[in-house]
């Protein structure tokens, strides 16, 4: 076979030095990656830059066709957004929602991964069914939750009233505050927001479960066996052997889930439409865009959201995260 190989420089134009191996590799690399780069540039990077420009121009849907690079730049949108009623509370809601959903989904994912770690009959089936909430379409699962929690014909309320002795049905998705009496004290809890967080935890714990289980299965058996011989209790083994091994994956999951949840739109939109104290910023952006047709203000708002996320990530990676193993190659 070697004999049939063409000479390496056959394709090079005569009179020019044939490109070195390194140069050819460079070209091939860029060529292979170029379709990806073009798609990402056109559909992601350019739109982001454009949003930045739109955020500083007074543009509504009617005059967007005339908008260009050389428009009138102004800070009016930012001012409008930052001073508009409800913006800061919406940012706070986003933060509570994100932190709550991130922590709970990773926590449940960890418990599920630990429980499903060892082999048992039917494990493959159980593992697959645990992944279902993550795999199923968001529109379908939000509808089932809505129906399950409905005050009129929901299963949760029917059973709550019948078996748990609730006085009246609870409107899980449309009630802003719910008063709980705890040890005699009356506490107001943001009911709809908690329900939405619970939904996120339910829908995304499989994601954490998947990564944590994969990591758990790679922990060398000898480590745990040695701990067992030393008489370590399961909680001690977990604390001193498994947890350090899981640390990097948990840190990575925290970042991933935080980013994804912070930017989440469809779950909240479909469950509550942003009502009852669940108005996260992305839903607000959507409202500005579709109800007020105010593209400038919507862009400014989205920009503030993205900047807030970057700031939080920097703080997290800089001060809070256990060392994440970088992508170092």
């Amino acid at each position: 076979m070697v004999a049939t190989r063409e000479p390496r420089s056959a394709g090079a134009p005569p009179g020019r030095r044939p490109p070195t191996r390194r140069q050819r590799e460079n070209r091939a690399g860029l060529a292979y990656l170029s379709p990806t780069l073009i798609v990402v540039l056109v559909v992601v990077v350019l739109p982001i830059l454009w949003t930045v420009m739109l955020a500083f121009q007074r543009i509504r849907l009617i005059n967007v066709r005339r908008a260009g690079v050389f428009g009138q730049y102004t800070l009016a949108n930012l001012e409008l957004v930052l001073t508009s009623p409800g913006f800061w509370s919406s940012l706070w809601t986003t933060l509570v929602y994100t932190v709550g959903a991130t922590v709970l989904s990773i926590g449940f994912g960890l418990v599920a991964a630990l429980a499903l770690r060892g082999a048992f009959r039917g494990r493959t089936l159980v593992r697959a069914s645990v992944l279902l909430p993550y795999v199923a379409p968001v529109v379908a699962v939000t509808f089932v939750w809505e129906i399950l929690l409905s005050p009129q014909f929901g299963l949760a309320n029917d059973w709550g009233v019948r078996f748990l002795g609730w006085d009246r049905p609870i409107a899980f998705l449309s009630q802003r505050e719910y008063t709980v009496s705890l040890f005699g004290a009356e506490v107001d809890v943001p009911l709809a927001l908690l329900t939405v967080i619970a939904f996120e935890a339910w829908r995304y714990f499989p994601f954490a479960f998947l990564f944590l289980l994969a990591r758990l299965q790679a922990v060398p058996r000898e480590l745990e066996e040695a701990a067992l011989v030393d008489g370590a209790a399961p909680t001690q083994t977990f604390r001193h052997i498994l947890l350090p091994q899981l640390g990097p994956v948990i840190a990575l999951l925290t970042v991933l889930r935080f980013i994804m949840t912070f930017n989440k739109f469809d779950d909240v939109y479909l469950l509550t439409g942003g009502g009852a104290g669940t108005e996260v910023v992305s839903v607000r952006v959507y409202e500005y865009l579709t109800a007020r047709f105010d593209i400038g203000a919507a862009s400014a708002q989205a920009l503030v959201l993205a900047l807030g996320l970057v700031a939080l990530l920097v703080v997290y990676l800089r001060y809070l995260a256990p060392r994440v193993e970088g992508d170092d190659e």
Partner: peptide
């Protein structure tokens, strides 16, 4: 570059893509 895809909310991409 890839990180940019996920760092920014899709609603942010939606506005210019809608126009474009």
């Amino acid at each position: 570059l890839f990180l940019a895809v996920y760092l920014f909310p899709s609603i942010l991409l939606a506005i210019p893509l809608f126009v474009l």
